[in-house]
């Protein structure tokens, strides 16, 4: 029997050499991480450096003239208004419906049955369907079918609802965000220990009382975070509103739900793709992008801050 290889007795525990392979691997993976963060900082830094100087009270508070490629008349008030309203209307639709559906799926539906599983799979997969497909759906379904149908019923001679409109854009976004809200809500509902539900039910609470007074209040932080993230994602989405409501130019702010609207993201796209002279439009483009990022990131920051705060609270038991 040959002796199994053993470390020589003389080898000490002190470090004798550098393990080059491991160092290299660690360094490369660290470099990749740094590079990704660098991408983030370069994009943000670039937008802030070039965008911040464009910001003025006039820029955010006036309605631009038709030639919005011109630096002196460029402004983004209607876009801020349009984006805010469409996000707001979307929220009004998607949060109640999404939360209710999630409550049904976690609290009422039998979790092991095949149809619940199919529904759950469909919903979570729908969350990954490209936003342009929702735009296509919105144009065909909301604008032409529903809107056109309403026009037929009320006998409108010119399209009143059967055209792109604020409502249709908001609904399209709501349909798009619905799976995200459902999934996020379900997750936070399921994170609640079954013990709490049992405790409430054992006290003689009904299912609804348990849901309303114990389950939902405790899941609220998670629901809120998920909701805000979904909303901020939707605020920056352009593809679904391309043909459901966004307008190239309007002289007025939208007055009703069947008006079209201008939108920050869509405006960014127009400035980027249709400016007669991209060099001239560059500062305006940066200004618009800056405002758009400010809007989405402030929503994001609220969500991240809220989550961190709530986690801390939960840990300290208050």
């Amino acid at each position: 029997m040959s002796a199994s290889p053993r470390p020589e007795a003389s080898r000490s525990l002190s470090r004798t050499g550098i393990d080059w392979g491991s160092s290299l691997g660690t360094a490369v993976s660290l470099a990749a991480t740094v590079f990704i963060l660098l991408i983030l900082f370069v994009i943000l830094g670039n937008v802030v450096i070039h965008g911040l100087p464009q910001l003025s009270w006039r820029f955010v508070s006036t309605i631009p003239k038709k030639d919005f490629f011109d630096k002196d008349s460029a402004a983004v008030l209607p876009m801020i208004v349009g984006t805010s309203i469409r996000v707001l209307v979307m929220t009004v639709f998607v949060i109640p419906i999404g939360v209710t559906t999630a409550v049904y799926l976690t609290e009422y539906a039998r979790s092991n049955s095949w149809y619940t599983r199919v529904i759950r799979a469909a919903i979570s997969n729908l969350a990954g369907v490209p936003s342009i497909v929702f735009g296509l759906f919105g144009a065909g379904f909301f604008v032409h079918l529903i809107g056109g149908g309403i026009d037929d019923i009320i006998g409108a001679t010119s399209p009143k609802w059967g055209k792109p409109a604020l409502l249709w854009a908001s609904l399209t976004l709501a349909v798009m965000t619905l799976p995200v809200v459902i999934v996020a809500t379900e997750e936070s509902l399921r994170a609640i220990t079954p013990g709490l539900r049992e405790a409430s039910l054992a006290l003689g609470a009904t299912k609804l009382q348990t849901i309303l007074r114990i389950v939902l209040p405790n899941a609220l932080p998670g629901i809120l975070t998920g909701g805000i993230l979904a909303v901020s994602r939707a605020a920056g989405e352009v593809a679904p509103i391309l043909f459901t409501g966004a307008a190239y130019y309007l002289a007025d702010l939208p007055r009703s739900l069947n008006d079209q609207f201008m939108d920050l993201g869509y405006h960014t796209y127009i400035l980027a793709s249709q400016a007669p002279n991209i060099e001239k439009a560059r500062p305006i483009l940066y200004g618009t992008v800056f405002v758009l990022l400010l809007l989405t990131f402030s929503l994001n920051a609220v969500a991240i801050f809220a989550r961190a705060r709530i986690r801390r609270q939960m840990r300290s038991g208050h």
Binding site: E237, F297, I304
Partner: peptide, 11 residues
């Protein structure tokens, strides 16, 4: 990295 995900694709 979450923030990177939060940048709208038009941007």
């Amino acid at each position: 990295i979450e923030m990177l995900a939060g940048i709208p694709s038009v941007v």
